[in-house]
Amino acid sequence: MKRYVWILGLLAAGWPAAGAMTAGEEKGTAIFREADRRDEGFEDFTADMKMILRNKKGDESIRELRTRTLEGKEDGDKSLLIFDSPKDVQGSAFLSFTHKKGDDDQWLYLPALKRVKRISTSNQSGSFMGSEFAYEDFTSQEIEKYTYQWIRDEVYQEMDCFVVERYPVNKKYSGYTRQVVWIDKEEYREWKIDYYDRKDKLLKTLTAEGYKKYLDKHWRAGKLRMVNHQNEKTSELLITNYAFQTGLTDEDFNQNSLKRAK
């Protein structure tokens, strides 16, 4: 039995490597590669974020945070999130190193105890600060983390878009079986993502608004809205004060910088 499973595993692993990508898979991968290529060279960016959590009844709860991201050259990006509100979590900070291959590294700093806690890999599918965003929606979307399949072309908000499905390579720790992404053909911006849960039921929809171009090259959204269809809660993320190429280095993304982030 064990050997049988092992052979199956080998087959599954060997299949795409044998170059047997379908036309749809090739096209889907090419679209994301192009999107990635167009955003290359941002070096680093910082931004302020405000997250508004809303439940069915319309009760609101606010979280404010700041983000710093360093573009990875050989490996994935590094990012630091600093929490400003609610006030009881002020000074907490989250550091993540995304990797093109293998699991990401994540740490959380708790200022009351001056303690840095390592976060387990499975945490990526967990809720981010009680919102409808998961940690994995927040961290850098490295191209190697998914396989892709172009589904169709479709007009979305008067823009010609590709509709591409992506499947997490690490199925064990992702909260999703697949994501369906709408990307416009002109600028390769992500406008909408449908997330399907582990039972392949539609879980959430993300829509982006207010895209602006920075340094004449890098498109960033000003507002991301996540709707959870299963619990009817929404989380809105407003992103302001984008700044690019601010001179951040690896030294701004280690445990020392995590501890002194305020």
Binding site: S120, S122, N123, S125, G126, S127, G130, G175, D197, R198, K199, Q230, N231
Partner: peptide, 14 residues
């Protein structure tokens, strides 16, 4: 050790 079940039964409970 510390073992974490994330999102028990498709909920947000860890």
């Amino acid at each position: 050790f510390e073992y974490t079940f994330v999102g028990v039964c498709q909920s947000k409970l860890d």
